[in-house]
Design a protein around this nucleic acid. Sequence first.
DNA 1: TTTGCTTGACTGGTATGGAAGTATGGTTTA
DNA 2: TAAACCATACTTCCATACCAGTCAAGCAAA
Lengths: 239, 239
Amino acid sequence: MTAFPTDWQLDLDGPIGPRLREILRARIVSCDLPPGARISESEIAAAYGVSRQPVREAFIKLVQEGLLKVRPQRGSEVARIDLQAVLDARFVREATEADIVSLLASRGDPALVAELERQIALQERVRKNSPADFIDLDEMFHRTLAEAAGRRTVWTLIETLKLHFDRVRFITSATFPTDTLLAQHREIAARIGARDPAGAEAAIRTHLREVLSHLPEVTLAHPEYFEGQVPDGLSAQVA
Amino acid sequence: MTAFPTDWQLDLDGPIGPRLREILRARIVSCDLPPGARISESEIAAAYGVSRQPVREAFIKLVQEGLLKVRPQRGSEVARIDLQAVLDARFVREATEADIVSLLASRGDPALVAELERQIALQERVRKNSPADFIDLDEMFHRTLAEAAGRRTVWTLIETLKLHFDRVRFITSATFPTDTLLAQHREIAARIGARDPAGAEAAIRTHLREVLSHLPEVTLAHPEYFEGQVPDGLSAQVA
DNA sequence: TTTGCTTGACTGGTATGGAAGTATGGTTTA
DNA sequence: TAAACCATACTTCCATACCAGTCAAGCAAA
């Protein structure tokens, strides 16, 4: 159920390069390796008891995902959060999912709506107790929408986008407005069931903007986590 | 101006891993390394006179871009074109650029419209003689739209999506309907200038569907280039 | 005290060797 | 003839060694 491995131990059976990549990615996204932290290939290699080569392999992938910055002969560090990249990733995700739910609403498949409501009931149940599980359920909700639209591979694309503002989300997880998000899920499912494309589209746009609603506070609380200067009109851009 | 290196010689100054990656990517996209072609690390290493390590590095990146398939201890081959991935990539791009031009049209910046018309005039000039240059200009046109919307990093995201249907586009470049595309560019610029968001959005959606208009023919001409079975209702999905 | 240079301990990039696994083609056996 | 077997030549993956560039501390000279 969990999206990331919870323990950061490396199992040496099978290919360790990809495995190491997932571990490091989880550590970065969860801010166990905070933005700006300096790490080296040999350091990680020694820590996990492997050679530098698989570490290097993992580093290359993390660089391509924008989670790591490597400067030859100088050193590597966990990429600071690029606000522009975060906002742009949300822009792409919003546009994509808006088209998805619009398409779904024009169909109004009752089976899909039933499945969504089943998931919403689950979300309701775990809401109070375990916010981490709620995040997993939220992810499943959106993946279900994408796959219902016949866009099998779209979700994998969105997943790489999600990485960037998942880092933000992890910092704000304490103040995560699960009640608001849950209500928005209900609205989305309702608009799809009512065959109201415009309404469904509007609902999910509102929903996806909610995710970054606490971004301005985070930039103030942890300015050292962010790339460059935090612009003044941030609140306006988020909303 | 050209999006890819035209000659496939490897300059040994500076890091050769990233360089090699671009070269191989260009060769794959242009079908010089056709889908399904089997290649190995050592083979490429010998061909370019480098060791296997930077080749491996390039391979990892290509795998992550979905252009290469590597099966451990078996061999690597150029990934066949995944129709679902192509159509989904177009879906994401269409949704994203639709929101972009909608935003731009709500502003109606005259300076932007002037720039677009300047580019269109250029496109008109090179249209007949060099279709390759037209492709480059088309790319610049769309990048201009993204950057004008203040979405600096969105275009880099779209570029990775573009890779997949650029492979299709390269095969059909002979029958590329430059006149139609040019007219659609004019329509997009006009709707932005007229401050008509809905019209601009509709125009660019039509435009982006045109790019894959020849996809069904290609799947029939080269079925060995594609992953799995080509579905019957393809034409409907494209349109 | 300040400036400039040297030196050495890092960094990531590359080359090479060996280990584990897979496909292939020829050989042997029923 | 046909099926089972084995040697061999691949493949990718990991470990190790070496290379070149970077940076900072410390010493020497002004």
